[in-house]
C-alpha cells in the first residue's frame, strides 16, 4: 500500500506532466472571493512574492522565502524520497527568467516498490543502489492578454551513483512513472517544453503543455557484478502533452482536472500482414492517456 501511494504521488507530482504546483505568479495579489480575479497561472517562471505558498494533494509545496527565491518539495514523499528544489528568479520584468536546482534521493522509495515494480532479489545480493539525483533547469515566462502566461523550459536531471545499482528502467505504461525513474535507472533525463496558461473569465484557467524528453541509453544488466550485456534498447525519446482546466474554489484554491497524453517506446509490437496474408510483428510507439486531478491551496496574499 505504501508502495502504491508512493507511485501515485510521484506520478502526479514530480514529472510536470500532471498539473504541478504553485499559485505564485505575480498577477493580482488580493482576491476577495472566488472568481473576483482569475487565479494566477501555474508552473511558470514566476517566483514570490515573499511569503506566498501553495500546496496540493499531489502537487508539491512551494514557499517563497524572499521575493526572488522559493523552495519546493513534496512533503508526502520526503519520508521515502527526500527532495528539495530551489527556484531563483534571475529576471523579474515583463519577461521572467528563473533557474531551478533540486535534489532527489529516491532509493528508499524505490526499495519500497520491490516486489511490484522492481525485483525482490530474494536469492542474491542485488539491490537498488543509493544515489543522488540532482536537477537543474531554466524557465522563461511572459504575459499576454493581461492574465495569460506562456512558459518555455528546459531541465536536466542526472544520477550520481553512490554504489552499485541493479534497478533497470520500468518500461511500464504509466508515463509519469517511467519519466520519474528514467534518470535513476538510465543516468539522465533531459527535457524541453512549453506551456500556455490562459484565463477564461475569473473562474477558469485552461492550460496546455507539451514536453519532449530524452533519457539515457538502456543500461547494461549486471548480475553479481558481471556485465551480462545491454538490455534490449528502447527509444530514449518521450513526448507528452497535457491539457487541464483549473476551476476556482473558495478564496485562493482551485481544483485542477486534466488529461495527460504520452507517446513513447514501451516495447510494443503490432501485427501487420503482407500481400499474401502472412503476419509479422513490427515495433510501434505506444500512446498513453491518463487523467490528472488535484486540489491546490495557496496563501500568502496578505489578506
Amino acid at each position: 500500500m505504501n508502495a502504491l501511494l508512493f507511485v501515485l504521488t510521484l506520478a502526479t507530482a514530480q514529472t510536470g506532466d500532471a498539473a504541478s504546483a504553485a499559485d505564485v505568479a505575480s498577477t493580482p495579489a488580493a482576491v476577495a472571493s472566488p472568481g473576483a480575479w482569475p487565479r494566477p497561472a501555474r508552473d511558470t517562471a514566476d517566483v514570490g512574492p515573499k511569503g506566498r505558498w501553495s500546496t496540493g494533494f499531489f502537487n508539491p509545496t512551494r514557499y517563497a522565502l524572499t521575493d526572488g527565491f522559493e523552495l519546493e518539495a513534496n512533503p508526502l514523499l520526503i519520508p521515502v524520497a527526500p527532495n528539495l528544489t530551489g527556484r531563483f528568479a534571475i529576471l523579474k520584468k515583463e519577461l521572467r527568467l528563473t533557474a531551478e536546482a533540486g535534489l532527489l534521493v529516491p532509493t528508499f522509495g524505490m526499495r519500497l516498490m520491490k516486489g511490484y515494480f522492481f525485483p525482490t532479489w530474494a536469492t542474491s545480493t542485488e539491490n537498488i543502489g543509493w544515489m543522488l539525483v540532482p536537477r537543474v533547469g531554466l524557465l522563461l515566462s511572459g504575459t499576454v492578454r493581461e492574465h495569460d502566461v506562456w512558459t518555455v523550459r528546459g531541465d536536466f536531471t542526472f544520477r550520481i551513483p553512490l554504489g552499485p545499482n541493479s534497478a533497470t528502467p520500468l518500461e511500464s505504461f504509466i508515463a509519469p512513472l517511467d519519466l520519474l525513474f528514467a534518470a535513476p535507472t538510465t543516468g539522465y533525463l533531459a527535457r524541453v517544453g512549453g506551456a500556455y496558461d490562459a484565463a477564461l473569465g475569473n473562474w477558469f484557467r485552461v492550460r496546455g503543455e507539451v514536453n519532449v524528453y530524452l533519457s539515457g541509453p538502456t543500461p547494461h544488466l549486471f548480475v553479481g557484478g558481471e556485465d551480462k550485456g545491454q538490455l534490449s534498447p528502447r527509444s530514449p525519446l518521450y513526448v507528452t502533452g497535457h491539457v487541464g482546466v483549473d476551476i476556482a474554489t473558495f478564496k485562493h484554491s482551485r481544483v485542477t482536472v486534466g488529461v495527460l497524453w504520452a507517446n513513447y517506446d514501451q516495447g510494443a509490437k503490432a501485427v501487420v500482414r503482407d500481400a499474401d496474408g502472412f503476419a509479422d510483428r513490427v515495433p510501434v510507439r505506444s500512446n498513453n492517456i491518463l487523467p490528472t486531478l488535484d486540489y491546490i491551496w495557496s496563501g500568502g496574499f496578505g489578506d
Binding site: 525485483p119 536469492t123 544488466l221
Partner: peptide, 18 residues
C-alpha cells in the same frame, strides 16, 4: 537462467545477447 518463481534464482529479465 534461474528466474524468481523457480526459487533457485531471482532473475526477472535477460539481455538480448543472452
Amino acid at each position: 537462467i534461474d528466474f524468481w518463481f523457480d526459487f533457485w534464482g531471482d532473475r526477472t529479465q535477460m539481455t538480448t545477447q543472452e
